[in-house]
Design a protein around this nucleic acid. Structure first.
Lengths: 160, 160
DNA sequence: GCGGTTATGTTATTTCATAACACTATCGGC
DNA sequence: GCCGATAGTGTTATGAAATAACATAACCGC
């Protein structure tokens, strides 16, 4: 996380727990049932860990936290689950952090993040991609996917 | 590069050579002289390799190509040079490729790339960041840096 | 030429990610 | 029900990307 300041009291607790976590997992199950995709045990477990976290998790954080009783997973288990979760839009990879977050925005969309270099928070948002897509089209590109990551300081960290 | 097609005849030769390469390096020297920064031998060598390349280079491509007579560099040599080149705006890292390109646009700017998943070309462009920055401000963020990478197919690769 | 600062050389290690292959589960068609 | 195709998992091993730590050398202002 490489925090530069230490005032992360209450402003970054995004993790889901208890009932809310259960509901989110249930919703994911339902969305899978709609397609012919399956939310298998390792996929569900990795999604659970992401949803419960307060900040982006690295792949090896997931590997370490995977086992209920402390036994880590093998790397391919987690990487394969992440690949699945990304494919279905349940999670996003943040390239500039080598880390992963659960998707917090409903509906098919292009991911974009505001990342606080101080507290490590990564807030998903939906900027207007029109100027970018227009420019890309003008250059002859057929865009399939856009990665947008804005780094800086969040409101909480600016004040201190 | 993981190319999906094989028609990369003549449409991605961006590499600088001979006189043009010399001029670009000279320009970099001049820009360094203006500040109190120094374009030392390893930094110059890495910049030269980036400028001469036709596509983004991985750090270990640079490490392998570093020595005039085939001897590779040690990793820290190249990573330190890249850090310098990025800091001065001579090069950019492309997060989604773990690769580096020389800066092709004059003037201080935020980097953005159109990346062809077929031929590997990475075209630097300057989209309008205003919507993104406005949204970030609305969320209370003070943005320091923006990474924007659009992946898809370039004009040449779409036709084939 | 001395001392602070910046950069380099070198060894080793850490972190991140995937290849390859054997085995198992699921599901539609018969 | 069972059979074959497909998708998913488990496991071992390895590959790729990046940095830590510390010693040495170059540069610059005085």
């Amino acid at each position: 996380m490489t925090s530069a300041c230490h005032h992360h009291d209450e402003h970054d607790h995004h993790g889901l727990h208890g009932v809310a976590l259960g509901r989110a997992l249930e919703a994911a199950e339902l969305r899978c049932a709609g397609t012919q995709e399956r939310l298998t045990a390792p996929r569900r477990r990795v999604l659970e860990l992401l949803l419960a976290a307060d900040a982006p998790l690295k792949a090896y954080d997931l590997i370490a936290a995977y086992g209920e009783a402390g036994e880590p997973a093998k790397p391919p288990t987690v990487y394969r689950a992440l690949e699945f979760l990304e494919r279905l839009g349940f999670a996003h990879r943040i390239e500039s952090l080598n880390a992963y977050v659960p998707c917090r925005i409903e509906g098919g969309h292009m991911a974009a993040f505001l990342i606080c270099d101080c507290c490590g928070e990564a807030a998903e948002f939906e900027p207007d991609f029109a100027p970018t897509l227009t420019a890309a089209q003008a250059a002859g590109y057929a865009v399939r996917q856009v990665t947008l990551e804005a780094r800086g300081l969040c409101a909480g960290c600016r004040e201190h």
